[in-house]
């Protein structure tokens, strides 16, 4: 059974259909890129997969649970236990150090463990910057802290929203390399992006247009 199943979901705001009868399955360990122009429904789809919103119609089955039927409390629990979020704006707490930012996610999940948080930072190559504040880190380094925070609780899905949108090419490559490494370790990755270079390195890519899936294709060159 697929890790994530979206069955005929629609999100309707008044007369507007942000998502229109979308069905999608994501397998465990898959690396999926979601692409499309502005207003195509990418953000709405990401919010639903990230358990920050619910569809107006349809079912969203994540690890056997229909999140469309969950209460706000249930969605919070699923988010905490199963989702790791990576943001375009990084969203680090500016008065906490890099390692403390990683430990924030642990705090709501289980218990903060500095050693484990340091290991997560080491995994993204930032062990030596652990005690720095976000203002002392470059954009690429902040994004890597954000990735370490997303990984710290070993989520079922890592969901990244325009993860390279604020990065230069060098840092973009670093982030892509981390994604490759995560995929090789079996992590399920869903990346929402405008950037074709980021989309094309994924194992599979869907393109949204006016709330519908216009293209769904597997990357033939993946892994080469």
């Amino acid at each position: 059974m697929s890790l994530l199943q979206l069955k005929n979901i629609s999100k309707i705001y008044g007369e507007l259909k942000a998502l229109d009868d979308v069905s999608l399955e994501v397998e465990n360990g898959e690396w999926l890129a979601i692409m499309g122009p502005s207003g195509s429904g990418k953000s709405t789809l990401m919010n639903i997969i990230g358990c920050m919103d619910k569809p107006s119609v349809g079912e969203v089955i994540l690890d056997g649970r229909d999140i469309a039927k969950e209460s706000d409390k249930g969605l919070t629990e699923i988010r905490r236990e199963k989702i790791g979020l990576i943001f375009q704006q990084f969203h680090l707490v500016n008065y906490l150090t890099a390692v403390e930012n990683v430990m924030v996610a642990q705090y709501y999940h289980s218990l903060p463990d500095e050693k484990e948080a340091l290991e997560a930072l080491e995994r993204v190559g930032l062990a030596d910057r652990a005690k720095h504040l976000p203002s002392q880190l470059s954009g690429g380094e902040q994004q890597r802290v954000c990735i370490a925070r997303a990984l710290i609780n070993h989520p079922e899905i890592v969901l990244a929203d325009e993860p390279t949108g604020n990065l230069d090419e060098a840092n973009e490559n670093i982030v892509i390399d981390i994604f490759k490494q995560l995929h090789n370790e079996g992590t399920t990755l869903i990346v929402v992006t405008h950037d074709p270079e980021v989309g094309e390195v994924a194992q599979r890519m869907i393109v949204l247009d006016h709330g519908k899936i216009k293209t769904d294709r597997v990357n033939p060159d993946f892994g080469k």
Partner: peptide, 16 residues
Amino acid sequence: RREIGLRKALGASDGS
């Protein structure tokens, strides 16, 4: 607000 939103996105309950 952003920090609160982040904490909620990371799984902070209303009680927290």
